[in-house]
Amino acid sequence: MNRPGVALVQYLTEMAEEVHPVDLGERVRAGSRRVRRRRRVALVATVAAAVALASGVGWAGRPSPNGLSDRPAAPAPATIPAGLYYLDTTVDSARVLLLDGAGQAREVKKVIAPECGVTLSPDRRQVAWVEVDVRIGTSGPLMVAHAGQKDARKVLDDVRCTGGDNPVWLPDSARLLIARSSAAQRRLVEASSGAVSDTPFAAVRDYVCWSPNGQYVAYRENSQVVVARAGDGTVVHRIVFGDESVSVRGVSDDGGRAVTSAGPSVIRYGAPQLDYGSHQVDTVTGEDVPLPAEIAPAEEADAQVQPAPGNHVLVRIPGSPAAALYLLDAAGRILDRRAEPETLKQAALIGQ
Rank of each mutant, 00 (worst) to 15 (best):
S173G: 09
E190I: 07
L142E: 02
R153F: 04
K150F: 11
W169H: 10
R175F: 03
R175S: 09
P171N: 12
A183F: 05
P141S: 09
S192N: 10
V159E: 00
Q185R: 13
M143W: 02
H146W: 05
R153D: 07
L177I: 08
A174S: 15
P141G: 06
K150W: 06
R180F: 01
V159T: 06
L177W: 03
K150Y: 09
V155T: 07
K154T: 14
S173N: 12
W169N: 03
A184P: 03
R186A: 12
A179F: 06
A184M: 05
A174G: 13
A191Y: 00
D157W: 04
V189L: 00
V155Q: 06
K150D: 14
P167K: 09
R187W: 01
L177C: 01
R175E: 06
L156M: 09
L142D: 01
T162H: 11
S173Q: 06
D165S: 15
L177V: 08
G148W: 02
C161N: 05
G140K: 03
L156K: 07
E190C: 09
L170H: 14
A152S: 13
A152H: 02
D151H: 08
L177S: 08
D151G: 10
A183Q: 14
M143E: 04
N166A: 15
A152N: 02
P167N: 08
A183I: 10
D151R: 08
R187D: 00
P171H: 05
V189E: 04
K154R: 12
D157Y: 03
A145T: 05
A191D: 02
P141W: 00
V168Q: 14
L156I: 05
R180P: 01
E190K: 10
R187E: 08
R186Y: 02
S173Y: 04
H146T: 13
A179G: 14
D165Q: 15
G140T: 06
E190G: 12
R160Q: 14
H146M: 10
S192Y: 05
A147G: 10
P141K: 11
V168K: 14
V144R: 03
S192Q: 13
W169K: 13
Q149K: 13
A179N: 14
G164V: 06
R153K: 15
G164T: 07
T162C: 11
D151N: 13
M143N: 06
R153N: 08
A174N: 15
A184D: 10
G164P: 01
D158N: 15
R160G: 11
A174C: 10
A179C: 10
S173C: 07
A152G: 08
P167W: 00
H146C: 09
A184V: 07
H146P: 09
R186W: 03
A179L: 13
H146A: 13
A184N: 09
L170K: 15
R180T: 04
V168R: 15
C161D: 01
K154H: 04
A147V: 11
A152K: 14
W169L: 13
R153G: 09
V144M: 01
Q149S: 13
P167H: 03
Q185H: 14
G148N: 05
G148H: 04
D157E: 14
P141H: 07
L142R: 07
R180Y: 00
L156T: 02
D158H: 04
G164C: 06
R180W: 00
A179T: 12
A183P: 01
L177M: 11
A183W: 03
T162S: 14
Q149P: 04
